[in-house]
């Protein structure tokens, strides 16, 4: 895919770890420049040492803050000379039965997983319009297509993100912006690791997760990033408003 993204400028939220980080790596390898946004300052520092400076813009901040998002978007667009694409990879999980879920926890999940991408998309659209079009890829979840037990807030927030993506796809098509969602299953990330470690029997929890998927394994972040790049590339120029499951066969969407 080398060169497929030459001169393309992509904003990635949650760029410091997991799927976001895998996307940054792939975009850079394919010739893009990337504006990275994350609340994890250490992870951003690591990005800065791993990649060529001219290809990166780093912004520290939180997707739950409209000001942080706006500032990061302006900084990224300024550093890269504009923006052609957005990837919303920032997300958090919550494994909790409903009766034990507090209002704060519920709102916290939605603030990151649904309000976050909304803020990022809203801030990015003027730049994408200026560029004459572009792409948005939102990382939803298989749990937004087919529910997971003890994840009411998480599943609802990810389902919401899919419909947000589709509704925005209608509106953004008018100025040449395609909006799609990707629905990963379990992915080898810090997020999955902490959910598994929190279980009473982590080994059994891991096996239970693995067994959900027809391919009988957990994905590498890079396998999700591959689909993100395809949906961000001209190869998918007639694809908009889809929710593509990259889940080793669980949801069969």
């Amino acid at each position: 895919m080398t060169g497929l993204f030459s001169h393309r400028r992509i904003f990635v939220s949650g760029a410091g770890n997991g799927i976001g980080l895998a996307c940054v790596r792939r975009f850079i390898d394919a010739g893009a420049s990337v504006a990275c946004f994350d609340r994890d300052a250490e992870a951003l520092d690591r990005l800065g040492t791993h990649f060529e400076k001219g290809k990166l813009s780093l912004s520290h901040g939180d997707v739950t803050s409209s000001d942080d998002v706006r500032r990061a978007m302006a900084k990224g667009a300024d550093a890269l000379g504009g923006l052609d694409g957005v990837v919303n990879a920032a997300g958090i999980d919550l494994l909790r039965n409903l009766e034990d879920t507090s209002d704060e926890e519920w709102r916290g999940i939605f603030a990151v997983n649904l309000d976050g991408p909304m803020r990022v998309c809203r801030a990015a659209l003027p730049y994408l319009r200026t560029a004459g079009g572009g792409t948005i890829v939102n990382i939803s979840s298989g749990a937004g297509l087919m529910p997971l037990k003890h994840r009411t807030a998480y599943s609802a927030s990810k389902a919401g993100l899919q419909m947000f993506s589709k509704a925005l796809a209608m509106e953004a098509a008018d100025f040449g912006v395609r909006v799609n969602a990707i629905c990963p299953g379990a992915v080898e990330t810090g997020l999955l690791r902490s959910s598994i470690d929190a279980a009473p029997d982590p080994q059994q929890a891991y096996e239970a997760v693995r067994a959900r998927y027809a391919l009988a394994r957990i994905a590498e972040p890079d396998e999700i990033a591959a689909a993100v790049l395809w949906l961000s590339s001209p190869e998918s120029s007639y694809v908009t408003g889809v929710a593509l499951a990259v889940d080793g066969g669980r949801t069969f969407h």
Binding site: E223, I224, A227, W230, A245, G248, G249, T251
Partner: peptide
Amino acid sequence: EARFITGQ
């Protein structure tokens, strides 16, 4: 690139 996508 799509080795983890199946049944879709």
